[in-house]
Design a protein around this nucleic acid. Structure first.
Length: 429
RNA sequence: GUGGGUAUAGCUCAGUUGGCAGAGCACAAGGUUGUGGUCCUUGGGGUCGAGGGUUCGAGCCCCUCUACUCACCCCA
């Protein structure tokens, strides 16, 4: 048997329906905030990621699916979306006509890591980016929009964390201060931290090792050493979040793994994903557009871990496979043809109907209808058809009554909309 | 890349010192010539992850491999 690739995943029912629901909600919410979809290729030149994400990050150093194509070009399956969005923004000169662009994109990303809970080699992100706004209002808007999406999806057990990572003015200074502090505490640090203390000292701050945590409690905080511009920016973001009563935590140890981040960084965290904590993460990247050869335009973005979000929602409430609204049970050849016609007719009216062509017994088909969880069953037998009617049965109450053939579609429409109205009312807050 | 755990029916899992391959659920037929859920009866289903070894005999013991899973690292 041929199996799927390690770390890859088939999304079956009923999960796939939940994916659809999440995607629809996200699109609706983003569009109503002025975001527009951009669709991008999943293959890019390797150089794009090396230059944007950072040559020394784990992603670029060891996690990318990179290969040479037949012409010898180095290509990479995208490990994240931002680089591609920025590339497209620059390449098509989107800043020329209208520098302010709010974009979103949904699709698969690839990282060749060891799979575990909440981590796959092909995973999906819902990604949103804003170009051309340096104001902290953009930061606040994105965080609030993210929180709103969680609310609409009924997600609980998630908390928002925010931090500021400074800018090229203040971060290098802080980095040196932090390095100096770390060098005074080298005996207390774990092996990993000793390895990364020079290359990526900020990472030492969020090490999970007990001894490292202890040693770093007194470490200087970037938040205390922000330049005036960054401090003001951060204060404004907070002011707007407070004004909208968003529940969030200032997390001074929130460090993001990609080199391009500046100023505001944020994450939605949960403890429902095993060793993984981030359901969504993002931040400002004011220098990246220029770094990649575009104009000096500020930007901010976030990515939602689609798989992780599904996992969190599924844990709270397992999804159910959608059921047809009505199931036709034809007894005999002429009944089968009628059932076939009715299914097509109802589909035309956006009512999902199903039937069975196996010719099995009424009992067997009742069982099937029950298993499909259809709320209504239409029994079409010879005696009824000769009288020009069928039997309509309500599966919940067991009630059954004869219905004339020519008014069946109309009656079904009424019954089904009557069933669905209270249900959709409770789902929409 | 490193470490732990696991692999037996579609699913969840038992399987005794090495001696005929099992249960529950699910599926199918019947109990009722046209009525689901509950109940009863019967039935179909297996490369015991793969390959090798020990043995009269291996699901069980040994070796190798693979996959899944959890964790480290890191991230969405």
């Amino acid at each position: 048997m041929i199996q799927l690739i390690r770390g890859f995943k088939d999304i079956l029912q009923p999960e796939a329906s939940l994916w659809q629901h999440i995607e629809n909600e996200a699109r609706r919410l983003f569009e109503s905030h002025g975001y527009r979809e951009i669709r991008l290729p999943i293959l890019e030149k390797t150089e794009l990621f090396a230059r944007s994400i950072g040559e020394t990050t784990d992603i670029v150093e060891k996690e990318m699916y990179t290969f040479a194509d037949r012409s010898g070009d180095h290509l990479t399956l995208r490990p994240e979306a931002t680089a591609s969005v920025v590339r497209a923004y620059i390449q098509h000169k989107l800043s020329g006509t209208e520098p302010i662009r709010k974009l979103y994109t949904i699709g698969p990303m690839f990282r060749r890591e060891r799979p575990q809970k909440g981590r796959y080699r092909q995973f999906y992100q819902i990604d949103a980016e804003v170009f051309g706004i340096s104001s902290p209002y953009a930061d606040a808007q994105m965080i609030l929009m993210l929180a709103k999406l969680m609310e609409r999806l009924g997600v609980t057990g998630i908390s928002a964390h925010i931090n500021s990572l400074g800018c090229p003015e203040c971060r290098p200074l802080y980095r040196e201060n932090l390095k100096a502090f770390i060098h005074q505490h080298t005996e207390e640090l774990c092996e990993d931290c000793l390895r990364r203390k020079d290359k990526n000292p900020l990472r030492v701050l969020d090490c999970k090792n007990e001894s490292c945590r202890k040693a770093m409690t007194e470490a200087p905080e970037l938040l205390d050493q922000l330049c005036t511009a960054c401090a003001d920016h951060f204060a404004l973001v907070r002011r707007e979040l407070d004004r909208r009563n968003l529940d969030y935590k200032i997390n001074k140890r929130l460090v993001r793994g990609l080199d391009y981040y500046t100023r505001t960084a944020f994450e939605l965290q949960t403890d429902m994903l095993g060793a993984q904590s981030a359901v969504a993460g993002g931040g400002r990247y004011d220098g990246l557009v220029k770094t990649l050869g575009g104009p000096d335009i500020p930007a901010i973005g976030f990515a939602i871990g689609f798989d992780r979000l599904v996992e969190v929602i599924t844990q709270a409430k397992p999804p159910e496979t959608p059921a047809p609204s009505v199931f036709f049970i034809p007894l005999g050849e002429s009944a089968m043809e009628k059932a076939f016609d009715f299914c097509l007719q109802l589909a035309e009216k956006s009512i999902e109907a199903d039937t069975d062509y196996s010719g099995r017994s009424l009992k067997a088909l009742m069982k099937r209808a029950d298993r499909l969880a259809a709320p209504f069953v239409v029994i079409m037998g010879d005696s009824e058809l000769q009288a020009g009617e069928v039997s309509l049965k309500n599966m919940a109450t067991g009630e059954q009554r004869p219905v004339p053939l020519d008014s069946l579609v109309e009656i079904l429409s009424l019954e089904i909309s009557g069933q669905e109205a209270p249900e959709s009312g409770t789902q929409d807050p």
